[in-house]
Design a protein around this nucleic acid. Sequence first.
RNA 1: GGCCCCAUCGUCUAUCGGUUAGGACACUUGGUUCUCAUCCAGGAAAGCGGAGUUCGAUUCUCCGUGGGGCUGCCA
Length: 506
Amino acid sequence: MRIYEIHHCIVRTRFPPSPTGFLHIGGLRTALYCYLIAKQTKDSFILRIEDTDRERTVPGALENIVETLYWAGITPDEGVVLQNSMVGQHGPHGPYIQSERLEIYRKHAQILLDTHCAYYAFDTKDDLEAMRTRETAAGNPAPKYDASVRMRMKNSLTMTKEETKAKLDAGEPYVIRMKIPEGNVVRFTDDIRGNVEFKGMEIDDQILMKSDGFPTYHLANVVDDHLMQVDLVIRGEEWLSSTPKHLLLFEYFGWPAPRYAHVPLLLNQDRSKLSKRQNDVSVQDYIDRGYLPEAILNFIALLGWNPGTTQELFTMKELIEQFSLERVQKGGAVFDREKLDWFQGQWIRKIAPKEFADRIRPLVAGKYPEAENDPKFHDRAALIQERITFFSEAPEMLSYYYVDPAITKDLLANKKQKVTEELLPQILAMLETELTKIAEKDWNPAHLEKILRGATDSLGLKIGQTLWPLRAALTGLPFSPGAFEVAAALGKAKTLKRVEKAKQVK
RNA sequence: GGCCCCAUCGUCUAUCGGUUAGGACACUUGGUUCUCAUCCAGGAAAGCGGAGUUCGAUUCUCCGUGGGGCUGCCA
């Protein structure tokens, strides 16, 4: 049971990745869902960069994230955008990169300090580690910096105002922690999970400002979502248990909280959280392997969401029309490469023939320069479009147009086709004489078929027995488009030359 | 350990108390002018366990069990 009917109201959403690596496939799905909801309600999709962890920020990650989003067609209306292929920012609530908003966070942390919702803490990492060791030894299995230990640590709640001020003035490093009231019960309605209740939950005195002057996710996220007027937060399930902290922060500031929707995680085959060890996790990996954005989008949209109908293939436009949080699954979804490949095959076949040819031509020409100016390239490409799943398979599938294939006896003779080595000379001889008789103007699949069928019949053979050696002689491949098509496309001269060559194979 | 979330074919999922539990991928059988692919037709394949509510539970409740997440001066 869902409380919100989200279809008819306007919803601003945001996707806030951390530039700690290339865009993650799970992140792409979250971004897609955010984008779909915003577009569905004709509102804005914001891209914000959360680079508050300076140690984990990796160079180039930000660019990759933005470019990959554009590759997928998930284009932000506001925030970090691409302007003339360069990363830029756009919108009235900027900057949209958190490291450029430090002053804003500092100011808001001060508000919390002033209202006694937060306090300074001077404990060093060693102090904290010692505390954890001590508490664990005392039988506390999960020590926290909460009310139970807070009063024994070095912070502005245990020190006098003068002591605190002296430490601050002396430039001693400090963090700002969020003060958590005791014994609260937090309830909220998640747009995917319904009512979520944290009973008797112990929230820790979360650090809001780190000693390096950067905010943590919790502070920055809440402040930005409010300032950027985000209506709906769609994020991964790993954030579900920290939502009470965020809700409390909104309460401290006196701001209305946005709605939340926690999407289930993507899983490995063994149902653990999708990991690098077992899968390609960055979208870049899939781009490099040649997956189409349409295939990736279609596949991940359906990992955790379903339309309620038997439709499997979706364009972005259809996803925008049909997507709804109500139909998002609560449980995690295993990432199944085989199904992804099926979508890839479906989408590669949907490409217009001309575009398909234009896409594969550079690849083929890279290996066989002749293809560059081949006037018949489009016809050749058309024959393989439904035979390949990736563009990268094209060069091999078209190789025999540009180079004479290596032909082996093992390929020419084929048990399954009842082509024995003894029969081979007879078949090849027949092919040569019959093909020689055909006039250039009649050199087309239909006529070739008519002649070859007739000749095969009169030899008392089955059509497969003549066509297999022909196709093998022409392509040198165990599989390819049909013999008639290939012969027609190759032309009479080349065809005869290869049949001739096949006769020489020992 | 604590807190939280989740649970239908191998996988992604439909089902909003009554169905021969449906579809898709993968698998498999057969067909489609020769191979491969496409396409078409068919097959095998599922409600974690136990109580309860109900005339009737996959569906509602509870308890187990299992899986996952969080429990950082990471997000």
